[in-house]
Write a protein that binds this DNA or RNA. Structure first.
Lengths: 153, 153
DNA sequence: TTCAAAGAGGACCCATACGGTCCTATTTAG
DNA sequence: CTAAATAGGACCGTATGGGTCCTCTTTGAA
């Protein structure tokens, strides 16, 4: 089954939740424990995902008390491919295209050598054309600057 | 790293080799040991791949002495997606789209529920538009009905 | 008629990768 | 000064899949 890792799935859910709760660029922040509660994902896992997303620059972490995370870009500006690369690493369907380092032992007789590139490009293109906004759908709630929105959870 | 299984990679190589050596529909057959030698892939692994491809109807196995395998369709009529499905199973990037059976524990609060379908469709479309002929490249040798072609290997 | 060569169909083992957890250090608001 | 939160690791158990092997069936040829 060609599938992406669970962590990537979690990352999409978490980022969608950040947007929904108003943790937009230069907005308020959302804590990892809070996101865990809101998404139903275990808290250490949420923390791990957010740390990785932070290293990739997709979210911004504010340390200290009253710290938390917020997006660095609106969801519509984040292609899905970028999240996958951040969590899973480069998108390359076969090992033999990862640069010249891992020399394939059968390269002398391999009939398809170098021909996977169009396939990888097609996949990357498909995943780049979809943004997290497409996955998250319309934000049902206005940015939760209203207290009523918060307690309604 | 979003990648397909090694077995799928092997399958493409083996099928490309079948075509190259003239094991076309209604043509001569090619044995698993012979293909292993020709491709550099271990013989039990080649046999395993061919058995799976046979179940999927992508190759035809002829039993008995002088038996072997041949393609059931020319490479240009085999989309890459079909090989991936045969070896890896259905193409679905996340678990939550595999029908209703594996109910996601967070389905009540999941913000992206049901929105992965366009992503999966895009991937499937990209992989369906590429045929094995694209991956194998031009067949350098004419179908090996000439004995000279065979011994030249 | 017998034998050898080849596919069909499983069962099985093991290494790797990944999910998941936890620990410690650092930062910062109150 | 303390509590709350992120940052950055280390660590472990399990599940998946790659790879091998064994047995049975089929079939051409001696």
């Amino acid at each position: 089954m060609l599938r992406l890792s669970k962590l990537t799935d979690y990352a999409v859910v978490v980022m969608a939740r950040l947007a929904r709760d108003g943790a937009l660029p230069h907005g308020q922040v959302q804590t990892a424990p809070g996101l865990a509660l809101a998404t139903g994902i275990a808290e250490p896992t949420v923390a791990k995902v957010l740390k990785i997303l932070g290293q990739a620059g997709l979210v911004e972490g504010l340390r200290g008390a009253r710290g938390g995370y917020r997006l660095t870009r609106p969801l519509a500006a984040v292609p899905l491919s970028e999240v996958i690369v951040a969590i899973d690493g480069p998108i390359a369907l076969t090992a033999c295209v990862d640069g010249g380092q891992g020399q394939c032992e059968a390269q002398g007789i391999c009939a398809v050598r170098g021909r996977w590139d169009p396939v990888n490009d097609a996949i990357r293109r498909a995943l780049s054309d979809i943004t997290l906004a497409d996955l998250a759908g319309p934000t049902r709630c206005a940015p939760a600057t209203h207290f009523a929105q918060l307690v309604a959870e």
